[in-house]
Computed example of a mutant assay.
Amino acid sequence: MHTVVYSPKDLSIIIGVGGNCKPTMFSLKEYMEGALILPKYIKGTINQFI
């Protein structure tokens, strides 16, 4: 499970993976201007129910 929130007004993206992941915010504007390097991965844990 993951959550992604896009904000076209301020060109930002918030991403979270799993219930224990602290949300990570990125500026799409900074990325497009070359001022932001995105992380290679975002770590979180998804609980598996059996």
Score class of each variant (00 low, 15 high):
His2Asp: 01
His2Trp: 02
His2Leu: 00
His2Tyr: 07
Val4Cys: 05
Val5Lys: 11
Val5Cys: 01
Pro8Ser: 07
Lys9Tyr: 07
Lys9Gln: 12
Lys9Asn: 06
Asp10Pro: 03
Asp10Phe: 03
Asp10Gln: 06
Leu11Gln: 14
Ser12Trp: 01
Ser12Val: 01
Ile13Lys: 05
Ile14Cys: 09
Ile14His: 04
Ile15Asp: 04
Gly16Ser: 14
Gly16Glu: 10
Val17Lys: 10
Val17Glu: 04
Val17Met: 03
Asn20Cys: 03
Cys21Thr: 05
Lys22Gly: 07
Lys22Val: 14
Lys22Asn: 15
Thr24Phe: 00
Thr24Ser: 13
Thr24Asn: 08
Thr24Met: 10
Met25Glu: 15
Phe26Asn: 08
Phe26Val: 04
Phe26Leu: 12
Phe26Lys: 05
Phe26Glu: 06
Ser27Phe: 06
Ser27Gly: 07
Ser27Tyr: 05
Leu28Ile: 15
Lys29Ala: 14
Met32Ser: 15
Met32Ile: 10
Glu33Thr: 06
Glu33Leu: 12
Glu33Lys: 14
Ala35Arg: 15
Leu38Phe: 08
Leu38Asp: 08
Lys40Ala: 10
Tyr41Ala: 12
Lys43Arg: 15
Lys43Phe: 06
Lys43Asn: 13
Gly44Tyr: 05
Ile46Phe: 04
Ile46Asn: 14
Ile46Pro: 03
Asn47Ala: 14
Gln48Ala: 13
Gln48Pro: 04
Phe49Met: 07
